[in-house]
Every structure is written in C-alpha cells, then in structure tokens.
C-alpha cells in the first residue's frame, strides 16, 4: 500500500444526542480506489460527511495530504482538493447541466472557460451529458443525474473523490456504465474513497476495502483478499459474493 493521502485516526462523530462514529481508523492510499463497505447504518455516510466537514468530528484526527483538516470548514476542505458526491447526488435541479458543471469548475466564470480537453474526456465517459448540456438537470433520469454528479466532481483535477453509493437505484446497464467510468478514472491516478453496499460493484473497482460496522472499521485490507474469501465475506457482510450476484 502506498502512502496514505487521507488518514482518519480515532474519529468520533456525534449527531445531536447520537454517537455515530466510535473511533474510526482509516487510511486511503494515494492513487488507489478504497471501498468502504457495510450494512445500512454502519456509519459509512457519516464517515464521508465528517471528512467533508459537513458534520464535525467530536474527537480524533483527519489528516489529508499531510495537513490536519479536522477543524476546517467544508469550503476549505473542498479547496484542499477533495470532491464529494453525496448519496442524494446533490444535483441543482433548477440549473442546467452546463450550469451544474460551471459551478463545480471553480476557476471558470463562464462555460467557455471550462477546460475543453477535460470536458471532452468527461463527455467521452458520459455522452448523455453532452446531449443534455443545456437542459435542466432536474429533467435527467436517475442514472444521468448520477453521471452528472460524478462529472461535476471531476470537472477540475481533484486529489481525492468521496463518492457515496454511486450504484444506488441504478439499472444494471447504467451500473456497468458507471463501472467503466470509474475504471477509466482510476487510470488517471485519481484517489477515490467509495462508499458502497453493492459488493458486486465494489469488487470490480476496489484496490482496497474497509468494512464498517456500528461506527467502527472492523476490517481493512486488499479487495482481492476479500473477494476470494467467502468465509470472510460471510462474516463481515453477512452474505457471500455469490449471493450478491
């Protein structure tokens, strides 16, 4: 495993009276795709939101690229080079696809200022976005919205992508499209932390895996090891890979 770009040590998060994360320790290696697995309510989304500063960690440290970002506000964390694709995709439904992308391209004042080569590459990954460029994002299908959410996260080079359940609610054909897109994204050495419940999806993409339960990391290692070990899958996830497929 290469040096961690992101390191969480003993992170606790409280939301109101609820203690959600109970000392999360997690390393995300530079240039790799790490998958965070776990059942509903295990704390995966809370982990991503805590990294993004949307919920403040009550204890522990979050270091990104050598800097402590635990006390930073969300905009500062984003400016450090972290992009976030939330579970609900966070699409601005009343804005066009173009306007959604323009917002994510912080350096661009007009659509014409967006890096043309990068946009061409994104249109190669998600052709639907080119087709519906001037349409309100709210009119897109669920799969197209997910494509826009991911495209928005990569419209400018980012050091780390945090992606929350990109396969959720998508048709199998669209999931294959997303898998292909993430594979191509991996070729660019982008570091990705992906939250998933769909092990079949996660297995095809992950270099490393961390499994959460009850607000803690209960397993971490190479994805290949977990994919090959049905007993471990049964123990950690409750189901074997065969059952997921």
């Amino acid at each position: 495993m290469s040096a961690p770009l992101l390191r969480l040590e003993g992170v606790h998060t409280h939301i109101g009276a609820y203690h959600i994360l109970h000392g999360v320790d997690l390393d995300v290696a530079q240039g790799e795709l790490t998958v965070l697995l776990g059942r509903n309510g295990a704390g995966k989304t809370t982990t991503l939101r805590t990294i993004m500063g949307l919920w403040q960690a009550s204890q522990g440290s979050i270091r990104f690229d050598g800097e402590d970002i635990g006390a930073c506000r969300t905009p500062e964390i984003a400016q450090h080079g972290i992009a976030y694709v939330p579970e609900n995709m966070g699409i601005f439904a009343d804005l066009t696809v173009c306007e959604n992308m323009l917002l994510a391209a912080r350096g661009a004042r007009r659509a014409q200022d967006i890096d043309e080569r990068r946009l061409t590459w994104i249109f190669g990954l998600f052709p639907a976005l080119q087709k519906f460029w001037q349409h309100p994002a709210g009119l897109l299908s669920g799969g197209q919205k997910q494509m826009l959410a991911v495209a928005r996260a990569i419209v400018e080079p980012r050091k780390l992508l945090l992606v929350d359940e990109p396969s959720k609610g998508l048709a199998p054909a669209i999931i294959q499209n997303m898998i292909a897109a993430f594979r191509e994204l991996k070729q660019t050495d982008t570091t990705i932390l992906l939250v998933e419940q769909n092990f079949h999806f996660a297995r095809q993409l992950g270099d490393r895996v961390a499994v959460m339960d009850d607000g803690r990391i209960v397993h971490s290692g190479a994805m290949a090891e977990l994919a090959e070990d049905e007993d471990l899958q049964q123990r950690l996830l409750g189901l074997s890979l065969a059952a997921h497929q």
């Binding site: 969300t74 984003a78 994510a104």
Partner: peptide, 10 residues
Amino acid sequence: QDREMVESLG
C-alpha cells in the same frame, strides 16, 4: 436549492 452542496463545491 442546496446550500450544503454549494459549500461542498468549495
């Protein structure tokens, strides 16, 4: 529409 997402964009 979504101020949290605007903050997440920096």
